[in-house]
Design a protein around this nucleic acid. Structure first.
Length: 604
RNA sequence: GGAGGCGUGGUGUAGCCGGUCAAACAUACAUGCCUGUCACGCAUGAGAUCGCGGGUUCGAAUCCCGUCGCCUCCGCCA
């Protein structure tokens, strides 16, 4: 039975991973975990690990007390080691670790705690199934790789705060127990005991509060803000996530955009040493949809989409000509070297196109003096060469073409472009940012049979479109043409930030709400406080929010967002470590005056 | 709400077109040997009724149905 020691009287002098030849001869006291133990019988090596790294401790039988402790120690035991740093003997240096030139000869060793055999071996724990890693998250987080991510997260957040602080921003906390917000994602609800039958919502973002802070005159606000959205998860989505939330008064979109570029450049440089080439390219929403078939274009590879409708308008190939005649679009792009794609891959791409709503997929393998294609005989030589010229396809390339209504066509070509890009490994390494601007303010929701906000209901329309928004008799098709002063930031094809100018004029805000068919009563009921605030000297203002977790996934090179969050949730929004969400005692529900409609068999 | 994948000693995998499979390999673990290793080495050993429930069959890890968990995708995510 292990006799556990107390660390009393011992003061740690160094972190394990910091010891260097310059420490030779120093008396040190280390505290750490047994990373690996190599027992040569008569000589035992232990790699002692703490958050800084590893150092080798050499136990010699000459020191029976220390040797006995080393003999007894096992993986993940917690040891205190008092000893002396010395240079490793000639030829025993380990160049693979930073402390490889030195080792510690212990004078005295204390076993501060024993450990059960861990469910997975920490030194190569990433091999373990993620379910096991999440259940024993505190062990998973011991792994150097995870520690690196979490520490980098700290450094990045610190760099972000420092940046904004030095630019005159105040970090101001906003409430977590708020009113349920209009529109948007589902809210997480919190019952009020004091007000039975009433509920708080957890914030989907601090949107309204940061606007109120502008009305209050703080001028520049930022917050590392936790946000909650009760929607189904994805690889890059957690039910609770963190935003770098920013709002500024008396600015235009360009001010926010250039500040964001400066912030990211600074933070990337300071934390991971990456040089970003700001300013980032900008595309309008319409350009992005046309050239990339997406509002979050992945610009790491070319293969830009071209509109071929006019080329094939008079084509003998009925699929194309009738599509053109009916107002649909014919769009395609060239796949460099795509001529080598096999029949099976082309079939998969076709299936995908159909899956996404296209009637089919036309492919042309460009060859000397023509094209190989299932529909080659329907296309004239002139058409083929015009298509090649327009898409930039040359010999050996493949052209993929989809004929479909505008929206479907963009979505399908966009998805195919990404698929092929990944298939052929075309993505350039590095961080490729771009801005997407001039989003529509509204889009039509088939489901709700009304206009909904593309960004959120407080987004300001473009100056030129303000009259349309103010016009009580504006038609839906006019409103759909209204542009927003909104912008998204995209990194390697992932949306990592977005923002807008807000409505500071109550009339404009009311016009937007009217277009969204949110009546004055409902508006007053749900966020009248904001409308009121707009009447007391609200300054022109706008801002942006960045998805910190997504940003970190890229900055750490992680394959999963869960690897940059200390305690993440699973794709069914559960916590495998704590078992949340869990049933609660009946008494708790009674206190809240809540009755559930599901069988609460687990409730106590 | 829908689709797909996965689930076998502590961990990672193999087996999975039914029976010589009371399940193999690696690693971790235990014991012993080993005084310069650093993924130490060598030897020996313990450890899984194959997620759970039901069904088909003479016989199920293997086939079928259901269910639970995890992962990915569509819908959804202003």
């Amino acid at each position: 039975m292990t006799q556990l020691a107390e660390a009393r009287g011992w003061r740690r002098t160094h972190y394990c991973g910091e010891l260097r030849p310059s420490d030779e001869g120093s008396a040190v006291v280390l505290m750490g975990w047994v990373h690996r133990r190599r027992d040569h019988g008569g000589l035992i090596f232990i790699d002692l690990r703490d958050r800084s790294g590893l150092v080798q401790i050499v136990f010699h039988p000459d020191n029976p007390g220390a040797y006995r402790a080393a003999d007894e120690a096992r993986s993940e035991y917690v040891l205190g080691v008092a000893g002396t740093v010395r240079m490793r003997p000639e030829g025993r240096v380990n160049p693979n670790i930073p402390t490889g030139e030195v080792e510690v000869i212990p004078r005295e060793v204390k076993i501060l705690n024993a450990s059960r055999t861990p469910p997975f071996y920490i030194p190569n724990g990433s091999d373990a199934d993620e379910t096991v890693r999440l259940k024993y998250r505190y062990l998973d987080l011991r792994r150097p790789e995870m520690q690196r991510n979490i520490v980098l997260r700290h450094r990045i957040v610190k760099a972000v705060r420092d940046f904004f602080d030095s630019h005159g921003f105040y970090e101001i906390e906003t409430p977590m127990l708020i009113r349920s917000t209009p529109e948007g994602a589902r809210d997480y609800l919190v019952p009020s005991r004091v007000n039975p039958g009433r509920f708080y919502a957890l914030p989907q973002s601090p949107q309204l509060f940061k606007q109120l802070l502008m009305v209050a005159g703080f001028d520049r606000y930022m917050q590392i803000a936790r946000c909650f959205r009760d929607e189904d998860l994805r690889a890059d989505r957690q039910p609770e996530f963190t935003q770098i939330d920013v709002e500024m008064s008396f600015v235009e979109p360009d001010d926010v955009i250039s500040l964001a570029e400066e912030m990211l450049s600074t933070v990337f440089k300071q934390t991971i040493g990456a040089e970003l080439s700001a300013p980032f390219p900008r595309l309008t929403y319409d350009e992005a949809m046309l050239r990339y078939g997406s509002d979050k274009p992945d610009i790491r590879f070319g293969m830009e989409i071209s509109d071929l409708t006019d080329i094939v308008r008079g084509s003998g190939f009925r699929v194309f000509s009738s599509a053109a005649a009916s107002g649909a679009r014919v769009r395609g792009f060239a796949v460099p070297g795509g001529g080598r794609l096999g029949r099976r891959e082309l079939d998969e791409l076709s299936a995908k196109a159909v899956d996404l709503g296209a009637g089919g997929l036309v492919w042309l393998a460009i060859e000397r003096g023509g094209a190989r294609s299932p529909v080659a005989k329907h296309l004239s030589v002139e058409e083929v060469s015009a298509i090649s010229a327009c898409t930039g396809a040359g010999e050996g390339d493949l052209v993929l073409i989809v004929a479909a209504p505008e929206k479907t066509g963009a979505a399908v070509t966009g998805a195919l472009r990404l698929d092929v890009g990944h298939r052929l490994g075309l993505a350039a390494p590095g961080f490729h940012f771009c801005w997407v601007t001039d989003f529509p303010l509204f889009e039509f929701s088939e489901e709700e049979n009304r206009l909904v906000a593309v960004h959120h209901p407080f987004t300001a329309p473009a100056d030129a479109d303000v009259p349309t928004v103010l016009d009580h008799s504006a038609r839906t098709e006019d409103l759909l043409r209204v542009r927003a002063k909104a912008y998204d930031l995209v990194l390697n094809g992932t949306e990592i930030g977005g923002g807008s100018m807000r409505n500071h004029d109550r009339r404009v805000q009311q016009g937007v709400l009217r277009a969204l068919q949110i009546g004055p009563e409902e508006a007053a009921e749900r966020f009248g406080f904001l409308l009121d605030a707009l009447e007391y000297g609200a300054p022109p203002h706008g801002g942006i929010a960045f998805g910190l977790d997504r940003l970190l996934t890229y900055m750490t090179g992680s394959s999963s967002m869960r690897d940059v969050i200390a305690f993440p949730k699973t794709s069914s929004a559960g916590c495998l470590l704590t078992g949340a969400p869990a049933p609660v005692a009946r008494a708790q529900l009674e206190e809240l005056k809540i009755r559930t409609s599901v069988e609460d068999r687990d409730a106590g």
